[in-house]
Write a protein that binds this DNA or RNA. Structure first.
Lengths: 188, 188
DNA sequence: TCCCACATGTAAGATGTTACATGATTTA
DNA sequence: TAAATCATGTAACATCTTACATGTGGGA
């Protein structure tokens, strides 16, 4: 296997993220992948829509990076479980090790967009939005900690845990940032 | 002006962001808007491609939220400068004050995606990526401080400054986060 | 003179979302 | 038996990027 076809770079990051999800032991369905993305990937990278996950899985399979298996009569439900292939693992490895710079993080912060345009709003309203943001962030913090609890002790999950710990600290920082902004907002 | 047509919610956030750029005193060309987005908006929201800015400006004009003026013979170059209209300002105000939750921030962090998949890479390589990220973040920090310097003293720029200060602290936190992750990476 | 910054746009295509359609199984 | 969750997919559409095409003006 492997002639000249080096597809290392021609898939969108989302495809690699889904393949990454598949790179951990076991096989899973698109639906399961979505739940996993929602409870872990999304904290540092974003969770694609379910329909996109299905689309990426088909792409991965067409590239030979994953195989799927329709569950037989042994399982109650008709589902399609995907698993990474050797070629997929090799491609993912090459992608993760590429010399290329992975690129700058992209942040889209709707709250900051409102703050930036604060001259058009009631200061009271603005402060309320910031407080809501703090509450949401704290709720997410709880979720990250739960994910961390589930990952704790599982073998070979060291790196996902590092990512989750980074997310935990990031959310903590997000709360502090919001509180500092509240102070700034006092001085017009 | 203003019958029943309330377009408050039916534009993408990017359109509002561009209208927001226009809401500060003065008129500007698409090209100028792009530079401004690159040096300020992008730190907390993201900078659209130039071609998209032009597209959004046309959309804004078709909604009556902006007007454009082709420069006459007084200016050396043929350009089209846009300015916000009263209707645009009113719509933007309504949008900024909407009761609705602005939504959770979206973060796409390519470095973390690599860290998460760290089991597929050489630890050395991973650490190098983190260091590059720190260097890039520090460069961005410098840019934010320059933007802050330019905004300093300008009347009625209070809110953009708050957003910029938030960005400055955020980048500082980003550096600390990366350093803490480097420590975590030591312990597998 | 050559290159860079200014300036505007089109076209093609990738990416991603929402809404819709369908149906099985589990749990309350 | 009703609702929630599991499960998969399609279709329509919006969003956004890249590459391309074109040209002017100013500075080295």
């Amino acid at each position: 296997m492997a002639m000249g076809e080096d597809d290392t770079q021609d898939m969108p990051p989302t495809a690699w993220a889904v393949l990454g999800l598949l790179s951990f032991p076991g096989e899973r369905t698109g639906y399961e992948l979505k739940k996993w993305a929602d409870s872990s990937l999304r904290f540092f990278y974003w969770s694609p829509a379910l329909s996109q996950i299905y689309a990426e899985l088909r792409r991965l399979e067409s590239h030979g990076y994953a195989t799927s298996r329709r569950s037989g009569p042994e399982e109650p439900r008709t589902k399609r479980a995907y698993a990474i292939t050797e070629a997929g693992r090799a491609a993912l490895s090459r992608w993760a090790s590429a010399a290329q710079d992975p690129g700058a993080p992209v942040l889209k912060h709707p709250l900051l967009l409102r703050v930036w345009l604060g001259h058009l709003t009631d200061p009271e309203h603005l402060r309320a939005l910031v407080h809501e943001h703090v509450a949401r962030t704290q709720a997410e913090l709880k979720e990250v900690r739960e994910a961390l609890g589930r990952a704790d002790g599982v073998e070979a999950w060291g790196h996902p845990q590092v990512a989750l710990r980074w997310s935990e600290r990031r959310l903590l920082a997000e709360v502090e940032l919001a509180e500092a902004m509240l102070v700034d907002l006092e001085g017009v």
